[in-house]
Write a protein that binds this DNA or RNA. Structure first.
Lengths: 188, 188
DNA sequence: TTGAATTTTCAGAAATTTCTGAAAATTCTA
DNA sequence: TAGAATTTTCAGAAATTTCTGAAAATTCAA
């Protein structure tokens, strides 16, 4: 299967970028191909289109399934396995965030927590622990926020993002209505 | 310079994680070391502590400077170059987001835009262009949102993130006050 | 200037990652 | 249940990335 020139450029680019997003070149290319292709594809078609070995495609498809980014789809009268992307672009973006969080952030948080439990033996260790605590708190805040955003409906999430600088005004409005308790306490 | 056991674990872990964040193992280790060390360090100290070559440290420091994550600092009476991390953990996190955006998202957006300018020659290409447009719009929305968040003061940003599920209520409140224009139009 | 101290560079070595393709395993049909 | 179709596995090959260390370049003090 020969790809049109623009499709080729897109697939190759996402191959390069894929490595930034946690998978290797060919895995990125396979995903990109499935994203722009209107119909489900089988492993042989993918191998031929991307000029990579059958074995490599098999491994790549397995990896993409473990990321929950593609889905197996059977085609009537054909014994081969066909694949399509799982959900919309938005869904896939969400999934990538979730999976990366699970694979990268969570293990780091555990390690940092374990580190915080131990007592500092001297001034230098005290300093180190403080920096580690800052990193821990930041990661925790970010992941919790991510969780909250994930609970919002796509529409609400989109309207929140499109607020743009309006978010600042909204926060002020909230503070006014809520009476800015903490600051009033300090002032009074 | 011998590190305490916990510091060693932290540095090694950030070496592994570093590769996820766009730089290689030793660059991650150098950054981690500078983060937890209370005083500025020179290249020889870093090389000795991490057991890596002087040349490798030189390259790593250059890379971290290009990321704007560390700063040169002179020590009175010493000709060697000393280095410290640039700003707080928060500052560094912001910088990493910014730099990654510049290095990864922006080039992708350019490529997608170029692709969208071309005309689709048939149904399949039409489909591909639609998916590409979805990716483009998502990336653009995300980066614009990131820009807006970056303009918020750290305090406001933190209070926004700590809102948690309150964000949903706040959005409803806004809709009520603003009169939910778009939906009213549809209904009427 | 000179030359000692320091940093940078970069060719080749080492380590790591990715890929191939043939053999093994699995699945399905008749 | 045989055997054809298909997928998976994985040892070794190929490609890529990272690292070393010695030489070149730079900086600085006298």
């Amino acid at each position: 299967m020969e790809l049109p020139e623009k499709a080729k450029v897109f697939v190759l680019h996402f191959g390069e970028m894929g490595s930034r997003w946690g998978f290797n070149r060919t895995v990125g290319q396979i995903l990109a191909l499935l994203v722009i292709h209107p119909k489900a594809l089988n492993a042989d078609q993918i191998a031929e289109t991307l000029s990579i070995s059958r074995g490599n495609v098999s491994m790549g498809l397995k990896e993409l399934q473990s990321w929950r980014l593609i889905q197996l789809q059977h085609v009537a009268g054909d014994r081969k396995d066909y694949f399509v992307t799982a959900g919309s672009i938005w869904d896939m973006a969400k999934t990538v965030f979730e999976e990366r969080r699970k694979r990268e952030i969570d293990p780091t948080l555990s390690l940092l927590r374990a580190n915080l439990l131990e007592d500092a033996q001297n001034e230098d260790e005290e300093y180190a622990q403080q920096r580690i605590e800052e990193i821990h708190d930041l990661l925790e805040l970010l992941t919790q926020w991510g969780d909250h955003l994930n609970t919002l409906s796509p529409e609400k999430l989109e309207s929140l993002m499109k607020l743009g600088s309006g978010i600042s005004k909204l926060l002020d409005m909230k503070d006014k209505i809520m009476g800015k308790k903490s600051q009033d306490n300090k002032a009074g």
